[in-house]
């Protein structure tokens, strides 16, 4: 196991070094991301969503979700062209109902155990419940990747996800148990493996993505973030967040078919993260939560307007590789569990 890890590390170092050299040889080119959404617009959309969701006792939620994603995608641009979200409320409703069904069954089993008032039965049902949640996670992640990517396009070219569900299960379950066995230390490596599983399988037409982050780096970021945050009475937390953002974004490499590539680069500073977070907090408090959409556009603006693709990216050379799609099973399921893995 150790030998394998060492080999992988060596390989990734070599890979990175190799990439830097090729990058230097050729001329660097910058492709910008940008976010053109306005707080007031998104606020109005979300208010309409909220009202319709309340008046339909929650049934409108999937349509609301679709609408807000359509807006956010439409206002996110790469090289001056916006993304398009093709998901519909109907698709998401089906996913929502399926997700809800699974949760109702799982909670039903748990409730049965709680009300039986028998410790043995309770433990068994609790075990089934936790196991059910554990088994659901990879399914939900896989489904979310498939759904989100297939419904996203840019200049008419759809993204796609080629990952296998069995690989996701293997990655997830092995990582999960190793994390428990190592009392959480393996968690950083687990997160990186999961990101590799998800991002490496993304296709953007004929372009592939690679995640080149290293678990040890993430571990160090966490370690440093934890202790520095304590020593600085929490002030370092914003720089810690910035480091995490860098780690997640800047390690994404976009590979073109001819071997040229570019890298995502995020330039948000810790100070900007601080201003964003404090501002968002004040907005939420003083609007009793109604202002949450404003915090979304603020966050999107900061990140997107400070992110570029650096290296070689031929915006005109993408070719459609996806086939027509269907099935919306999983989108809302992950949403309900609200796990921020991406």
């Amino acid at each position: 196991m150790h030998g394998l890890c060492y080999f992988l590390q060596l390989f990734s170092t070599y890979f990175q070094a190799f990439m830097t050299t090729t990058l230097l040889e050729k001329e660097k080119q910058i492709t910008h991301f940008s976010f053109t959404g306005k707080g007031t617009e998104y606020f109005a959309i979300e208010i309409v969503n909220l009202l319709l969701t309340v008046f339909t006792l929650g049934l409108y939620y999937p349509w609301a979700k679709a609408k807000s994603l359509q807006y956010l995608y439409r206002k996110t641009e790469l090289a001056g062209t916006p993304f398009v979200f093709h998901g519909t409320g109907k698709e998401m409703f089906i996913g929502f109902i399926k997700g809800l069904g699974i949760f109702v069954v799982l909670y039903g089993i748990l409730m049965y155990g709680v009300f039986s008032e028998d410790p043995g039965t309770f433990l068994i049902t609790y075990g089934i419940f936790m196991l059910g949640l554990l088994m659901l996670m990879p399914l939900a992640l896989h489904g979310m990747m498939r759904y989100r990517t297939s419904r996203s396009s840019w200049r008419g070219i759809h993204l796609g996800y080629r990952g296998e569900l069995s690989d996701m299960y293997a990655t997830y379950l092995v990582g999960f148990f190793l994390t428990i066995l190592t009392l959480g230390i393996y968690g950083s490596w687990f997160v990186v493996k999961l990101r590799k599983q998800m991002i490496d399988n993304v296709r953007f037409g004929n372009v592939k993505l690679r995640y080149v982050g290293d678990g040890a780096d993430l571990f160090l970021i966490h370690l440093k973030g934890f202790f520095f945050s304590i020593f600085t009475l929490g002030i370092y937390f914003f720089w810690y967040t910035k480091n995490l953002l860098y780690f997640y974004v800047n390690n994404i490499v976009v590979l073109q078919e001819d071997g040229t590539y570019s890298r995502l680069q995020c330039h948000v500073s810790g100070w900007e993260v601080l201003k964003l977070t404090v501002g968002n907090l004040l907005i939420v408090i003083f609007t009793l939560g109604l202002g949450i959409p404003l915090t979304t556009t603020r966050t999107m603006s900061l990140i997107m307007n400070n992110t570029v693709m650096s290296g070689h990216f031929d915006a005109d050379a993408l070719v459609q590789t996806e086939e027509a799609y269907d099935s919306a099973t999983y989108e809302s399921m992950t949403d309900m569990m609200d796990i921020g893995v991406i």
């Binding site: 200049r155 008419g156 459609q320």
Partner: peptide, 9 residues
Amino acid sequence: YYNGQSSKG
């Protein structure tokens, strides 16, 4: 104009 096959505008 994007024809849906290529990202070339």
